[in-house]
Design a protein around this nucleic acid. Structure first.
Length: 422
RNA sequence: GGGGCUGUGGUGUAGCCUGGUUAGCAUGCGGGCUUUGGGAGCCUGUGACCCCGGUUCAAAUCCGGGCAGCCCCA
């Protein structure tokens, strides 16, 4: 890795995808990529934090099938109009043509709501708050970018239903709140929610709020959306309930979709530097890497001590890698693990072994500090401080990128400077 | 959606324009020696022209199509 992130962001991003072993683009089908273990681990961690937050707000997990029969998908007119150009269809199975085409879900409203209708008879059956952490498929015709725009992508979709419009609108606000807790507070990615104009709202929604973050080159990336669906879906899907006034009414619905692929891409882009990734401690597959440094005469002692350190750090619950490969020099290892974004490096050499000490190095600024082995638990404090400092920097950068344009010229100038409207 | 570019061992590349040798180099990987406070070194082995078609005595090289990827602009 030798590319400058700021000046050549696109190349930096592409190279990092490969060099840090995040994804493999050689699968050979446009828009479909292999997500390698290092990235998949991070993605799964992000999912688990996000899911925990959703569950704190009374969502429950659910699974709906990957395939949506054509009769469901086409039921809501605006919705299918918006998606028909990007649906993958299954038309054959084995030796048979299917009687009814099956869509690979591009989003799951039309898969879920027929069931919601079956599950609901009275007001006591509402609200429904379900989410799923799964894949969707869209036939993108634009250029694809790893984790940013693919034909297959990972997201969470949360679908809620209520008896009243007020509750549904409150849900849209709650979605924006949980997005803030996860994406900003937990993952450190700054963003702003904007109400989308009519032409850019979700197909079938009354209105849409979408979260945009900024990439280092000034481009915006939409990383989450939440929609007030109103009764637009409940009507065609006959999703009704008996209200307390004895009248049958259609449910009020919302749908919410944080794009986990893109949030990961944004996190990588906000936190990385010219040497590679920088991972938040709580998301990193390896949180601490131990690099032993020795000469022939000190080898046995240093490696023995390095194992002791490894045991101590593992006992503290950290995800630890002892990199004791003997055919790589320490300098090589430093660069390798910096590229991969491991937040904390512990160097142990003859001096540390003698003093039962640790040299702890922060990934972001390479600041070193000495700890005694007994103080090893301070590593987590150092790592948390590092994350908070970086998050703060991100916040400042985001703030300085917001311009309040009062006229067309100011707007144009702001856009040219890579800023975002506020 | 528009424009530009690329595809050669696992990776990065030379060769392509001007068709013809055993497809060169670096790195990685296996083995051996040696080496460790910021990408060490020597020896040895291994491994490649994206796919289909065309032109030609002859194609990595020229032409057409496909697939895949990169960059820029909307």
């Amino acid at each position: 890795m030798a590319l400058p992130k700021k000046e050549q962001f696109s190349e930096w991003y592409s190279e990092l995808m490969k060099e840090a072993e995040l994804v493999d683009l050689r699968y050979g089908v446009k828009g479909f990529i292999v997500i390698r273990p290092w990235a998949m681990y991070i993605l799964k961690k992000m999912y688990s934090y996000y899911e925990e937050i959703l569950e704190q707000y009374n969502h429950m997990p659910v699974h709906f099938p990957v395939v949506i029969p054509e009769r469901y998908l086409t039921k809501e007119k605006e919705h299918i109009k918006g998606f028909e150009g990007e649906v993958f269809w299954i038309t054959r199975a084995g030796f048979n043509e299917l009687e009814e085409r099956l869509a690979l879900r591009p989003t799951s409203e039309t898969a879920m709501y027929p069931m919601y209708a079956l599950w609901t008879s009275g007001r006591k059956d509402l609200p429904i708050k379900l989410y799923m952490s799964e894949l969707v498929w869209r036939y993108e015709t634009k250029a694809t970018r790893p984790l940013i725009r693919g034909r297959e992508f990972w997201w969470i979709e949360a679908h809620c239903a209520f008896a009243t419009k007020e509750e549904a609108e409150a849900q849209v606000r709650e979605d924006m709140l949980t997005a803030k807790k996860a994406i900003w507070e937990t993952f450190g990615v700054p963003f702003l929610f904007f109400k989308r104009p009519e032409w850019d709202k979700f197909a079938g929604a009354d209105y849409t709020f979408a979260a945009d973050t900024l990439m280092p080159d000034g481009r915006v990336l939409q990383i989450a959306t939440t929609h007030l669906l109103g009764q637009n879906f409940s009507r065609p899907f006959e999703f009704k309930f008996m209200d307390t006034d004895g009248k049958e009414k259609y449910a009020w619905q919302t749908s919410y979709g944080p794009g986990m692929n893109r949030i990961l891409a944004a996190m990588i882009s906000w936190f990385g530097d010219d040497k590679g990734l920088i991972l938040p401690f709580h998301l990193a597959p390896v949180q601490v890497v131990i690099v032993p440094i020795f000469k022939d005469e000190s080898k046995k002692k240093v490696l023995g001590y390095a194992k002791e350190v490894e045991g101590k750090l593992k006992a503290l619950g950290y995800r630890v890698e002892l990199d004791d490969a003997e055919d790589e020099t320490p300098g090589f290892k430093f660069n390798k693990w910096e590229l991969k974004g491991v937040p904390i490096r512990v160097e142990v050499g003859p001096k540390e072994a003698e003093a039962k000490a640790l040299t702890v190095v922060r990934r972001d600024n390479r600041e070193k500090q000495q700890l005694s082995l007994e103080e090893a638990a301070k590593i987590e404090e150092i790592a948390k401080l590092m994350f908070e400092e970086m998050r703060k920097k991100n916040e400042e950068k985001m703030r300085s990128s917001i311009v309040d344009a009062k006229n067309w010229d100011e707007l144009k100038k702001g856009i040219e400077e890579g800023k975002i409207g506020g």
